[in-house]
Design a protein around this nucleic acid. Structure first.
Lengths: 344, 344
DNA sequence: TTGAAAGCGCTAACAT
DNA sequence: ATGTTAGCGCTTTCAA
């Protein structure tokens, strides 16, 4: 059932049928109703390929996942981010295209996307401190929105980020106020922009209270359970072990927690663990109560906003890039207690 | 840079250029080389929309995620499955389209997919015991492959599944052999086909040893950490608590583990936990050592096989549906010990 | 071995 | 308010 077929059945021209179905104002109401009824009755659906070709719009958004960072797909936030974005696409009639790309091919892949025209824009995930993708995409004129930021990039570009620095600054200050002096930072890979920002916030809070950051207490690595576990073991084996852990993700927090169990240490009495809510904190940290809802909602919101901003940008290419900074919700759990030996 | 442009530059017809680039045999080798060189030099990329319209193939595969089961997106297996499938699509030049659909709209959504023609086939995720999608898709003639099976469906259809029943049968037998008599089953929602099969395997092993399954020890629910935790607490509070847990997912296993900690019970001495490797078992169960690699590989393999089978089916629509049953790898960890009081 | 012409199904400028 | 016409960029008969 094509537009032409439908038009013939109705004794109308394809143009009129197209206009009726696409809500053009000049169509007579009676005609529109007739057309709509017929379309419904015959289950007519415009062929999307044809429409795409005719309009020059792909009606699709690309989400590019670098293969090296497939961990991100495993990463719990990924699903929620996608869920948030896809809800927006669905209502706007866009498709969501997932594209996995080898690291070496990044540049080629984006150029191909541009030239082939099978997406109208892309979402950039997991930006690094100096992310070449941003310059490349600006250059190509392919609309994009970054989830996160790239500290080393000067160009203006649309992005949605969470205030990682402030979140970690507040978290660190919180631990200091509980009397902790030796606080470990189990951070993500520092080539990732968010990890850098988190460390900066951590150091800022320490500096503000006249504490020098101890490099031995600052580790970074892939944010996995295993890494958190290994890091905590290493740190707790020191002659001057930390009394508190600030971790960058739920997964590493779980690993840290497991290390404490290994050693028979009690959370909140011997050692405190604090992670923040916005990146991966699917559990009320330390407290044993999961808080899926709150965090999933915030990640989903980020996905939604990224998608909305991108669609707006596609609709109005001239507009200045929208940037949004969400404040992280710090969720402090029951096990985050005073430092051992600290006066209350 | 369009095909026409390129043809003009070369003094050839668009037809010849198209043939040269698409590997048609009748093109002179010298011409082909000239064309290829020029295409490369000018960064020519065929417009995919145009090609799709002309060929009638969408060059895209749809992965439909029912909104109600967005947990599946959070679910660690999802990312790996997608990663496996997308690798196949990438080499075959297909796009992967992620489609989220409200439950009520399932039927409408598939019909629309079919009519709009923006995918050449779909992967069906998370089949239920009687899954109406299978009949619908067969009816629509839209190629599809199911990840999993639907016990209640008689039609032949392509699928890739893991032998859940046998996996749980073997796991149960293993626990029985360790002397366990009261074994709890913390299962997924029984409307999901895989959960049904697991229960059947569990019951079969019990029956085989003359043990009657105790309905009080069989729980089912969403496979979350919270559910596992709640379930374990409820079971351990009984006057006749289980000495072993067989769980259906990593997440619920983590919840069970946490419940043991709450109660000061020791894994492998007081209580054993066993989960299987193939669905969510990202940890060597009970053992404290994560085994991401093995399981991620198996889920990825499932994604890859589903994609391969689907593409083959699209290429040769007449062929009988391919079905594949993978045997689950049971990974038994250190904490899965003999039942308390059992003679060795 | 190459080219001319038609058409995939739709939209959009230009009539009327 | 409706129709005519000409594409969108490619593939694909059919001729040469």
């Amino acid at each position: 059932m094509t537009l032409k077929d439908l038009a013939e059945m109705l004794g109308l021209s394809p143009t009129t049928v197209s206009r009726a179905l696409n809500g053009f104002p000049e169509v007579a109401e009676t005609t529109r109703r007739r057309v709509e009824a017929a379309a419904l009755a015959h289950g007519y659906r415009p062929n999307s390929q044809a429409r795409r070709l005719a309009t020059g719009r792909a009606m699709a958004i690309g989400h590019v996942i670098p293969l090296s960072r497939q961990n991100e797909m495993l990463n719990p936030i990924f699903g929620d981010f996608i869920a948030g974005a896809s809800a927006v696409y669905a209502t706007a009639g866009y498709d969501m295209v997932l594209i996995t790309v080898a690291d070496a091919d990044q540049s080629r892949a984006y150029r191909a996307l541009r030239a082939q025209g099978n997406v109208d824009g892309v979402i950039v995930q997991g930006p690094r401190a100096q992310d070449s993708r941003i310059a490349l995409l600006s250059d190509l004129g392919l609309p994009f929105v970054v989830h996160g930021r790239a500290s080393g990039v000067d160009l203006p570009y649309a992005h949605v980020d969470v205030n990682s620095a402030r979140a970690f600054e507040r978290a660190t200050r919180f631990l200091i106020d509980l009397g902790h002096r030796r606080i470990a930072l189990v951070n993500g890979l520092e080539e990732m922009d968010f990890a850098l920002r988190r460390r900066r916030g951590f150091e800022r809070a320490l500096g503000e209270r006249g504490l020098a950051p101890d490099p031995h207490l600052m580790l970074s690595g892939e944010m996995t359970e295993a890494q958190g576990h290994a890091a905590a073991h290493r740190l707790l084996a020191r002659h001057d072990p930390p009394t508190a852990f600030l971790t960058s993700s739920l997964l590493s927090a779980m690993g840290v927690r497991r290390a404490l169990w290994d050693l028979g240490l009690k959370m909140g009495r011997d050692v405190s663990i604090l992670t923040h809510d916005d990146e991966l904190g699917y559990f009320r940290n330390g407290a044993e109560e999961p808080i899926f809802t709150a965090t999933r909602a915030s990640v989903r919101a980020a996905g939604r906003r990224c998608a909305e901003i991108l669609l707006a940008q596609i609709a109005e290419p001239g507009a200045p890039p929208v940037t949004e900074l969400m404040e992280a919700v710090l969720v402090v759990g029951a096990s985050t207690g005073p430092a051992p030996g600290a006066r209350p």
